[in-house]
Design a protein around this nucleic acid. Sequence first.
DNA 1: GCAAGGTC
Length: 862
Amino acid sequence: MRTVLMVAEKPSLAQSIAKILSRGNMSSRKGLNGTCSVHEYTGTFAGQPVRFKMTSVCGHVMTLDFLGKYNKWDKVDPAELFSQAPTEKKEANPKLNMVKFLQVEGKGCDYIVLWLDCDKEGENICFEVLDAVLPIMNPTHGGEKTVFRARFSSITDTDICAAMARLGEPDHNEALSVDARQELDLRIGCAFTRFQTKYFQGKYGNLDSSLISFGPCQTPTLGFCVERHDKIQSFKPETYWVLQAKVNADKDRSLLLDWDRVRVFDREIAQMFLNMTKLEKEAQVEATSRKEKAKQRPLALNTVEMLRVASSSLGMGPQHAMQTAERLYTQGYISYPRTETTHYPENFDLKGPLRQQANHPYWADTVKRLLTEGINRPRKGHDAGDHPPITPMRSATEAELGSEAWRLYEYITRHFIATVSYDCKYLQSTISFRIGPEHFTCTGKTVISPGFTEIMPWQSVPLEESLPTCQRGDTFAVSEIKMLEKQTNPPDYLTEAELITLMEKHGIGTDASIPVHINNICQRNYVTVESGRRLKPTNLGIVLVHGYYKIDAELVLPTIRSAVEKQLNLIAQGKADYRQVLGHTLDVFKRKFHYFVDSIAGMDELMEVSFSPLAATGKPLSRCGKCHRFMKYIQAKPSRLHCSHCDETYTLPQNGTIKLYKELRCPLDDFELVLWSSGSRGKSYPLCPYCANHPPFRDMKKGMGCNECTHPTCQHSLSMLGIGQCVECESGVLVLDPTSGPKWKVACNKCNVVAHCFENAYRVRVSADTCSTCEAALLAVDFNKAKSPLPGDETQHTGCVFCDPIFQELVELKHAASCHPMHRGGPGRRQGRGRARGRRPTVKPSARRPKDKMSALAAYFV
DNA sequence: GCAAGGTC
């Protein structure tokens, strides 16, 4: 029997499609990556009995990147990234082993049906799947067609079955347009980002961002926030005047009337109107009206609307809201949370999910009434052909979800119930008055039936006192008429919800990527989130956007994305050649890039105002090995040392503190050593600023400290302080931390394993002798007489940390605490001591040879 | 270390 392989874009879709096509008669198993499942069933295909294997990928299989050597920032001129630098496709998520998985499942298959999402990205993934699978599938049977594309516009029985009945072919042009987009985004984004980052970081010490990034989505996103900031800055308040009148409605009630002119900006004119009206005793009713109005029930919920409400009403940022929604989805509480669609499919079961809410303590009454009296037909929304709108899938309580997830779930559920509820109906009454020659109006709203606002109380029509009944010609006594002086107010900073709306409107990002872009501009310190989730640009954010405006406004305008997308659409429609469009667009941006580089002084002028030059930043810390003057320690990210005399910058390890290490010097280059520490519960090691940036030996990499240095005789090196192989990781070595006493530590130089040992010993040294059992270096430990835990009044003992029975009591294995609580812990403690008995690290003689001039010279004197 | 797009 022949086999048909079918591939969807995500595991959840593979399951729903397989369920529909097999009519629930399938067997499922997990694939080798543990994430994707394979659903199998039998049926007919091309007029023959076949075995179907339905599975999925997890989004894109591949991602685009530069060849490895072009990812070295200091070796490649960013301008090369526009054309010379070759790109390659890499597996998007190596952990998922997607290519291997597809090949294992695709081996021996005769046909393939592609069920990827029906958008351009999905079309592109079709070809990623084909690239992986076609080479290992069975050879075709005499030119017979073997590759099919299923096109569906919703995940419903009818649609899926119809798609299966008329399979087509994948659209290569659409896929190519995505290839072009990927290459453009990569080349343009990386070139600008690298140039800006290097240029400004090399000049300023307090930029407080480790990366000055640029991108066709993130930069316009920042642009929106700065645009609002500029409006606030340039706002000039204006004084205006309004007339306010009060009339007596009943014995003890007065009505406040609104002036039909609203306001005037000239005091004298306002005064004139006041003079004309203030002597009037009565207000004449000129007209009355009563209109029934409706406030519409909401459209079915899609992702962006959910994110807007999460931000504005729940105070939950988009990234966090999305994570929460995804968790609710995987736990089966809500439907798939990434969708653009606001229209329920025609045969969508609305009553099923509603019934599940019928006993919920918060909304049972409303739901029961809807079920007995009949639900309302939902409004016609937009069908993007992706997934149905977001709906609750089963009832839940706050206790089982936890308060954060509950609040989002509660909103989704209330929104869903509201979509099948009735519109809110209210009566709007208006009375038009005349006082002297001036006209005034009074309006009032009374609710006739609350409809959906019962389940969405925050949407209710505010309660107002009803207006008195009256008719044309009636008069009311004027109780007060006065002139008020007011001022126009500046707009406030952009709310996250407003930003989402702007991004959606201009086509910046997608429902899935909008939260990422917003998160990016926060993390890069371009904006901060203020109260009410308003986004206030930082100095850095403002300077960047103003700089782009000055040099080339197109770099920050929202049209930067849509203009390129227009070109890409031509590829997708087969109206333009992929190579030509790509080449042309790259050429345009290459010119923009060169112009930007040439004009960077314009942005730099703005930087100068807000930031301080490297030489003026930081505190003197340690001495340079070349000029022997003090270098300044710049704490702001990325933390580094700067020698203003030599005009050199040395980057330091991040996320820790740096101190001077007893004025000790590196024997290779004479630089003073510094001590890096991740905190009292973490680990610390000395490092040479020069070696960390210019690794002295072949087997050393950038950023390494003395605990990884293979210098044969330096007292701080791995060779002198290393004890034995790490108990947990593959390549690490446990190294004595010479600064840790009296709470001595031995820490792995690769992972976060730390052993606390010999508390209160006053001296711990690594001996030249090794353990006869495990070859680890022996430790010589000296205690004070009073504090010695050693047996028989001994104060000194030399032994192996792993094997010595006396030492075993004095050593405790732990993991270093990192700065962020999320990263604490690390791999679990192994059973027993694992392969704790490590060899003493040996250094290959070839590795000892110093590599660069400076250290070669110094090594000569060692 | 960089983009934006999928998805987990």
